[in-house]
Design a protein around this nucleic acid. Structure first.
Lengths: 217, 217
DNA sequence: CCCTGTAATTATGTGTACATTAATAACTTT
DNA sequence: AAAGTTATTAATGTACACATAATTACAGGG
């Protein structure tokens, strides 16, 4: 990534590190270490960390540092409850605002998911999934809804990696079965401008993701 | 306010300035000027502004500065739609989690509202109202829900001041009639642990606030 | 008069030195 | 050996000087 703007560079780099599971819950993200790794001074790193904390992406202990928030079944339930409602609302709104161009975009993502069945790649699946959920949030045309959906999605995503590490794959592979099918139904509801159905399907989809993840608990 | 932690001091001071209508939409909040006004260096001010931007409270133009976001009927509808759903969810969750202590707290706020009818004060009303809405978000025991509710509330609050300035008082005084009554009904539903009713009442309450605000448009 | 290119201005963006403090380790005392 | 106390350490918190870029003002040519 180009380093035109160091603050943005630091911000996106750190997010990428987190989403790619470079840290585990409880790990501290030290300003000094990050600035060394990213080869820039503490100032932009510090700014980026401040943003991530403000967004609820990281927790912070004063005079100690920023760290990946602890995970717990209760915390997961909290974030997925919010996601369920926010994304349900987003899907309903998207069904109202959707353009032909948006529909084409969503079908393009479904095609990518289909292609991934032949050549499975967890990272690729994660990226398509992110595009799908955040794409619908964007189509809702409500910037606040989009913002909250993005944060909630990112936060909840830590759980996918975390539990995937500890409960080896079963749930994610399960999600790779039901996920794409539910995605298709959601896209169809949005295409048909059926707000209520789109909202309910999305709500159900997020809930399913949560339940599959915690099948072991 | 004590200046133990300058970053926090700057953050809260700036929020207070915004909520107390010290700026109007489009106004720039300059680091240099704020640091002069608050009598501290640019560093903590800059950090605080960064947080507020990350939270969606302020907009930012690169190399130009942070400014109060533009207002529009559409933007108001967006933020109030989200608030309606988030706070509805929060009220329902609060009805599940509420303790006797919480109930007492909420009734205390109702008493304060009652007292304000005899000695009206807009600022006092605004503060009690904030305590009510954010209090219920807190009682929900869901930190993500609380976080999003707080942001959405603050953002929507700019509208109250903004339109109150341009459409002089009528709507806010209207809200001072229906507001407290709806608040009481919500508290009662929460006290009775009636999740669905609490959620619906809160949703309706937020929507009423929005509609009263835009009675002129 | 307007358009365009350039210089001045102004505020943010960045690096760095230093202050502060929370956590920990070392040490004393009982 | 346990408990309390002090010193060290390692990271954040803060200030400030300077770099950079966007906006504005202005001058000159069409």
């Amino acid at each position: 990534m180009a380093k035109k703007n160091l603050e943005e560079f630091a911000y996106h780099s750190i997010i990428r590190l987190i989403l790619d599971n470079h840290f585990k819950p409880g790990d501290f993200l030290l300003e000094t270490q990050l600035s060394e790794d990213l080869e820039l001074s503490r100032t932009p790193v510090r700014h980026a960390l401040g943003q991530l904390v403000a967004e609820g992406f990281l927790d912070k202990k004063k005079k100690k540092g920023c760290f990946i928030p602890a995970v717990s079944p209760e915390d997961a339930r909290h974030i997925f409850t919010v996601r369920e409602n926010l994304e349900g609302l987003a899907a309903a709104s998207a069904a109202r605002q959707v353009t032909d161009r948006d529909v084409a975009f969503l079908y393009g993502l479904l095609d990518q998911e289909e292609a991934l069945k032949k050549a499975p790649s967890k990272l690729a699946y994660v990226h398509v999934n992110e595009s799908f959920h955040l794409g619908i949030a964007r189509i809702s045309q409500n910037k606040y809804l989009e913002q909250y959906c993005r944060h909630a999605f990112w936060r909840s995503h830590s759980y996918i990696f975390f539990f995937d590490n500890y409960y080896t794959g079963k749930l994610v592979s399960g999600n790779q079965e039901t996920g794409p099918r539910q995605h298709m139904e959601i896209v169809q509801a949005i295409e048909n401008r059926n707000e209520e159905k789109a909202g309910n399907l999305m709500k159900q989809h997020v809930r399913t993701t949560f339940e599959q993840m915690f099948v072991k608990l």
